[in-house]
Write a protein that binds this DNA or RNA. Structure first.
Lengths: 225, 225
DNA sequence: CCAAAAGTGTTCCGTCTACACCCATGG
DNA sequence: CCATGGGTGTAGACGGAACACTTTTGG
């Protein structure tokens, strides 16, 4: 311990992941039963401790990868939760991260292996410690961000229909949108490009499939829903 | 160390305060020369370690109080900075907080005692570690928040003129605003109430003094600049 | 042939923006 | 009496919201 650092105490720092998914036109959250004490058996976000050899952001990436097997996932810091008694066991400060993933990319066997499952956001049970606060805050941030950044694609497959996209926005914002106004706005956005492909899964008539063009987005990242 | 906690490492957690002030129609930041190693003599935000007996928010309040002698100050978490080598001495994770204070409330003797001073935001020097990143992020958040929350009052005395208020917004947003449009909008906001008092300091004619009515704000917190 | 989802424009209204002159007073 | 900052209204542009019918095709 060099210099004045030694005068102070260290604490454990953890990350907790608020993992949003979209399925069946609903926003869902990946949560599981805690498999350790304290709080064993309680519903909880998935998390882990920050190691000495990784940044906090890297710890969040690692934890998400352990759980889902996915890398390069959209993930943003939500906030840091630092109440003294927030963890009933020891003093642990936790940095909450919000991730958006496409449910279809998720390997279902990993899901069982870690004892987690998708739960509808509006049927969320009471969670361990302050995890409900984390979710609330993440949702608030997500609702704000979804209007100014094109992030909703992260909840969908690479190819998606406009109806699907609209349902994502409706699920996040918790309100219905006007179909014509929605499509009008999307049409003005260059980086949401129509492909020649048609999806025949969801309708008899078939719907055009769209794609998020990252290159075009980089050129002109203007976005407003 | 109980259970699985002991398998993991602890780290130091600090708070750093980005303290905004408003004076001479400019946004200013309270910074000082580091008085300890590593980085002694470099410009730096004012910070401190989180103790075992306080939450992270409380640590931020305490650090701000040590520096300014002020309590009940507007302060919000900005983000947590957790790169491995962000602090050249040891592994320290830091939670950045943004505070808004009225420069006039500040006891100048404390300023010298702690070796800090007000520096214009656009003349900000290079700061220790990642503190410039913290400032950038705080400013981004401040600019967003100032449009949807009535927080600019925190930079002014209890009584202020509309011209002063406009200058605050201009300083934060970094752009000039139209006087008539600005006053039109303010007039629609009930909780910014005109008093009978006149300020004769800044103009010969005298300007009406306004006040932020917290009670009215609680009743109807609608705000949009 | 019909149910079910895809696709498509226009009008109206409210909001934001641009803009210039008179007022009151201390020195 | 004049320099200085305080205070006021209107018109035009723009963007957002409301709104209903036609198309396609699998079953």
């Amino acid at each position: 311990m060099t210099g004045y650092y030694g005068l102070h105490s260290k604490v454990w720092v953890a990350v907790d992941c608020i993992i949003f998914g979209f399925d069946n036109n609903k926003l869902k959250l990946l949560i599981g039963r805690r498999q350790m004490d304290p709080g064993r058996g309680e519903w909880s976000l998935y998390g882990g401790f920050v190691g000495v050899d990784e940044s906090v952001d890297e710890a969040a990436d690692r934890v998400l990868f352990e759980l889902t097997g996915l890398k390069h996932i959209y993930m943003k810091q939500v906030a840091t939760f630092g109440a003294i008694d927030r963890d009933p066991g020891e003093r642990v400060i936790s940095v909450a991260y919000c991730a958006l993933i496409n449910v279809k990319d998720y390997d279902t066997s990993l899901l069982e292996e870690h004892g987690v499952e998708w739960v509808e956001l509006d049927k969320l049970p009471h969670l361990y410690s302050d995890h409900n606060d984390m979710v609330r805050k993440a949702l608030t941030l997500l609702r704000r961000r979804v209007k100014t950044e094109p992030i909703s694609f992260n909840l969908l497959p690479d190819l998606f229909t406009l109806t699907q996209l609209q349902h994502v926005y409706e699920a996040i914002l918790g309100e219905e949108l006007d179909k014509r106004n929605f499509r009008k706005r999307i049409k003005q956005i260059d980086f949401i490009e129509k492909t020649e492909l048609i999806d025949k899964m969801t309708s008899k008539r078939g719907a055009a499939l769209y794609r998020f063009n990252k290159r075009m987005y980089m050129e002109d990242p203007t976005f407003k829903l």
